[in-house]
């Protein structure tokens, strides 16, 4: 139990007086005097605390019973409300079962178990004998294994240790193929029609009136057998039409739109959330995750937020039947930056 200080007057409030030329120094004031609890002195209070602890354990028992009542007693009739009731009762039952035991034990310890203050001296950190002993053990090991005397064993062991982790590289490599150029290309090709998400119907240029916003996927995406979500997560596009005078295309990009209809990647260049909040009067595109804001009239330049690059534009034109089609794939990788992007 170590030093059992009961905090008598002699120990506490002992402050050293600084003598001539001595440095002021606190002496250990010891512990404050031990205070008895109500339950220590009053048997009635002790009895009451005992009943309280028992009641808390009783709550735990009721909680467990409630769990079994919910599990077996509540009839599920395929409606959400009975499932909800059962879940609620299961949760409350388990909760009270645990809480009752926990609070009961804590209350028991606080009110009834002995609460004398105890202090324990710290062990010495290191003795010289221990250090010498440890050194000797290491020396003995080196001697007994004979590793110094048998370089063949030592060198083959080192070789084995170096080679052993190599299979891990193969295993981690098998977690998936490297993305190769998948990050640089999407499903869009020259002549791919722009179709509505999720119905997959093509879009006539004339149907995109000023102020409209279409959520667009490439034609054929819905028919993909595998990799549909991956393809969609790269290829989704937002199609909008505004007054052609409001657009300010840079040289070389004048014909990427069609009569004020422009298509931009919906994948934010920050961390890839779908940028799909379009304010049709201010022509701002907002990302819902971190409030990056892109100005549609200036080729989706970033005007606010953490995104670093403008949204990539999908060059579009109209085919012979009047439907909107892609001129080509995006001219740069869509979505957030990655190491090899350059």
């Amino acid at each position: 139990m170590g030093d059992h200080s009961d905090g008598t007057e002699a120990h506490s409030r002992a402050v050293a007086r600084a003598g001539h030329g001595e440095v002021d120094k606190f002496q250990d004031p010891g512990l404050p005097p031990h205070r008895l609890r109500l339950a220590d002195t009053n048997p009635k209070a002790a009895k009451r605390a005992e009943r309280q602890v028992a009641a808390l354990f009783g709550i735990s028992v009721i909680g467990t019973l409630l769990f079994f009542f919910a599990y077996f007693g509540v009839r599920l009739d395929n409606t959400i409300s009975t499932l909800r009731l059962q879940n609620l009762l299961l949760g409350l039952g388990t909760g009270f079962a645990m809480l009752g035991i926990g609070t009961g034990i804590v209350h028991w310890a606080r009110a009834l178990m002995p609460d004398h203050e105890v202090s324990e001296e710290r062990h010495a950190i290191r003795t010289e004998a221990d250090r010498v002993g440890a050194e000797k053990i290491v020396g003995d090991i080196l001697e007994e294994t004979g590793i110094k005397r048998r370089p063949l064993i030592r060198n083959t062991l080192l070789g084995a240790l170096v080679l052993a982790p190599l299979p891990a590289i193969a295993i981690f490599r098998d977690l998936g193929p490297l993305p190769a150029d998948a990050l640089r290309h999407t499903m869009w090709k020259t002549g791919t029609r722009l179709v509505r998400d999720p119905t997959g119907t093509p879009i006539k240029a004339a149907d995109v009136t000023i102020g409209s916003a279409y959520h667009v996927i490439p034609e054929g995406l819905n028919e993909l057998k595998e990799g549909k979500l991956e393809a969609k997560s790269k290829a989704v596009v937002l199609l909008m039409r505004l007054n052609p005078e409001e657009l300010h295309p840079s040289p070389g990009r004048e014909d990427w739109g069609y009569n004020g209809i422009v298509a931009y990647s919906k994948i934010c260049t920050h961390v890839g959330c779908p940028v799909a909040l379009y304010e049709q009067q201010t022509h701002h595109l907002l990302c819902p995750c971190h409030q990056s804001t892109f100005d549609l009239t200036r080729e989706c330049k970033v005007i606010f937020g953490p995104a670093n690059r403008p949204l990539p534009q999908l060059p579009i034109k109209v085919d012979s039947e009047g439907y909107l089609v892609a001129q080509s794939d995006f001219h740069e990788p869509v979505g957030p930056s990655f190491w090899e992007r350059g």
Partner: peptide, 13 residues
């Protein structure tokens, strides 16, 4: 009609 900043979702869309 696309009131204020809401985009228009016409009957073709």
């Amino acid at each position: 009609t696309g009131p204020q900043n809401m985009p228009v979702f016409n009957d073709a869309n």
